[in-house]
């Protein structure tokens, strides 16, 4: 059992690593997706629409498997000899793609909640588009997006459990192996649950603090 404490620690760091990297990359994808969906140009709008429709329409587990096996097939095809995509990058890419699709919709809604006059006032003093995004839109949309975004982050943390299917040693994998070899499934699965609960609780706390930071004085909470 003591040997598994170290294993669990490794699993924990793997879970955190995968979640953090795909969370950050997925947020960037989501912002780009939302901007494309709201763009005046048709091609980026359609591409973003297809992306969110497909990804949200397919189970996450399948996305992971498709990227793992599809990615290997694609790289092999391009390079010309058999190269296997690493489980870690497959997992991160898959979760990024999933996170990006859902966060696209969250960000789109948040952007739409900002009145048109806010953009107009910003462009009327001659600010460039990127300045308008950075100074006026982002700070206001964060407040609107945070509750749903926090939900999504927590669900990403738990979705990382799915990457154990491609062989990554995360919390879930350690629990599964331990449960089998030590013949104590309940103990191991309870330990894994406690670890996930720890991560999600810490996240909730962090988001509470971020939310307070973005409160506009005088505005309803």
């Amino acid at each position: 059992m003591n040997g598994f404490a170290i294993q669990f620690l490794h699993g924990l760091s793997m879970t955190v690593l995968v979640a953090a990297v795909s969370g950050v990359l997925g947020t960037a994808v989501g912002l780009a997706g939302a901007a494309s969906k709201l763009s005046a140009y048709r091609i980026p709008m359609w591409l973003a629409e297809i992306y969110t429709t497909v990804i949200r329409g397919v189970p996450e587990l399948l996305v992971i498997l498709l990227i793992y096996f599809g990615g290997t097939a694609a790289i092999t095809f391009v390079i010309g000899r058999y190269v296997e995509i690493s489980a870690l990058s497959a997992g991160v890419i898959a979760l990024t793609v999933v996170f990006g699709a859902y966060s696209t919709e969250i960000f789109r809604g948040a952007i739409l909640s900002i009145p048109r006059g806010q953009w107009e006032a910003a462009s009327s003093i001659g600010l460039k588009s990127w300045q308008i995004w950075l100074l006026v839109i982002l700070p206001q949309m964060v407040r609107v997006a945070l509750p749903a975004f926090c939900n999504l982050w927590i669900s990403l943390l738990k979705d990382t459990a799915l990457i154990s299917v491609v062989g990554l040693t995360d919390i879930m994998r350690v629990a599964f192996v331990g449960a089998g070899s030590m013949r104590a499934p309940l103990t191991f699965y309870l330990a894994a649950s406690a670890l996930y609960l720890l991560l999600t609780s810490l996240s909730l706390l962090a988001f509470r603090m971020i939310e307070q930071h973005f409160v506009v004085p005088g505005q309803l909470r």
Partner: peptide
């Protein structure tokens, strides 16, 4: 020419019916 329009907008001050101040 977006640059030109940004330059022109900067020299035309606009006051809106609904103020449009940035609340944050």
């Amino acid at each position: 020419d977006r640059r030109q329009i940004q330059r022109v907008r900067a020299s035309l001050g606009m006051v809106f019916q609904s103020f449009n101040l940035w609340p944050h």
